[in-house]
């Protein structure tokens, strides 16, 4: 029983991180229906920018965090302007491959500057945030990450539901020509959505970095694990991303605990194939009805 509860807590916390990582991914998909293979690298970039600000520039955390997020925001703008904008209206495969190429470029740059080593942030969270309850220990980083994640989740939920910019984004994702003809500034929407997505990616990268330390290879493979998560939750549902993340996280830890540790890393993808065969649009995804 003790083991079960420990696995449950581990699974929930890992799953929440997956959900956090998946949120930025869903943002891009929701507003521009681009499948972003560079997501893991964007997360790593955010974390490294934060690291550089803390260690090299010596800024205090409360200043470095918003500055790093602002840096990611600008980076998203630049990426969209330079690489994605020329591809508006091009076939899907080019857009997907472009993000794959971008992933390689980012990875190369990060490997040049920081190498493949593991970096850790200095410990700056107060220990008083930790939660102790019977045999369960939740360290402060998890508490903070859950708080940050929930805040962003609610903010984005409101943003997409009520703000006009959020509704423009949804309209562009739904049908580009129709949105254009109704006077939505599609290019502006794209630029903004990439900027916001890079910001969210950077945020989740920083949180993940606080918990596990940052390493280019780990974060980029995490960027791929986002796929089972978002497919389970539904590609265009932010809340679904978090729930999908938690389910995948639980699945992983329980497989690792009870079946075999080597199966752990591949079980999300098996689940992915299963979901795709049974319920391709996920738990909360918008079902496109099309008969072929």
């Amino acid at each position: 029983m003790e083991f079960f509860i420990q696995l449950l807590v581990n699974g929930l916390s890992i799953g929440f991180l997956y959900g956090l990582a998946a949120m930025g991914f869903v943002m891009i998909f929701k507003s521009s229906s681009v499948l972003n293979f560079a997501h893991g690298e964007l997360m790593a970039l955010g974390a490294f920018i934060f690291l550089a600000m803390i260690t090299w520039a010596g800024l205090p955390v409360y200043l470095a965090f918003p500055l790093a997020l602002a840096g990611c925001f600008v980076l998203g703008f630049v990426v969209e302007r330079l690489f994605l904008r020329p591809l508006i209206g091009e076939p899907l495969i080019y857009v997907i491959m472009l993000t794959v190429g971008l992933a390689s470029i980012f990875k190369g740059i990060m490997l040049f500057i920081w190498g493949g080593n593991l970096y850790t942030f200095p410990d700056f969270l107060p220990a008083g945030l930790a939660i102790h309850w019977k045999s369960i220990n939740i360290p402060p980083v998890y508490v903070v990450s859950i708080a940050i994640g929930l805040t962003f989740l609610i903010l984005f939920g409101l943003f997409f539901k009520y703000s006009s910019q959020g509704i423009y984004m949804r309209s562009v994702a739904d049908n580009q020509p129709a949105a254009l003809s109704l006077g939505v500034h599609v290019r502006k929407v794209f630029a903004l959505s990439w900027a916001i997505a890079a910001l969210v990616a950077g945020m989740s990268g920083i949180v993940l970095g606080i918990i596990n330390g940052i390493n280019v290879h780990d974060l980029s493979s995490l960027g791929l694990k986002v796929f089972p998560v978002v497919i389970l939750g539904g590609l265009d549902s932010i809340g679904g991303a978090v729930i999908g993340g938690i389910i995948i996280g639980l699945l992983e830890t329980f497989t690792g605990g009870y079946l075999s540790t080597s199966l752990r890393d591949v079980v999300p993808y098996m689940a992915l194939v299963f979901i795709l065969m049974v319920k391709p649009y996920g738990l909360f995804g918008l079902v496109e009805i099309e008969r072929v």
Binding site: E90, Y94, A103
Partner: peptide
Amino acid sequence: APLRELAFGSAIVLFILLEP
């Protein structure tokens, strides 16, 4: 490794943008 990643990524991106 980094050089290879960089060269690969740039080759893909440049071809898609300039000569799809």
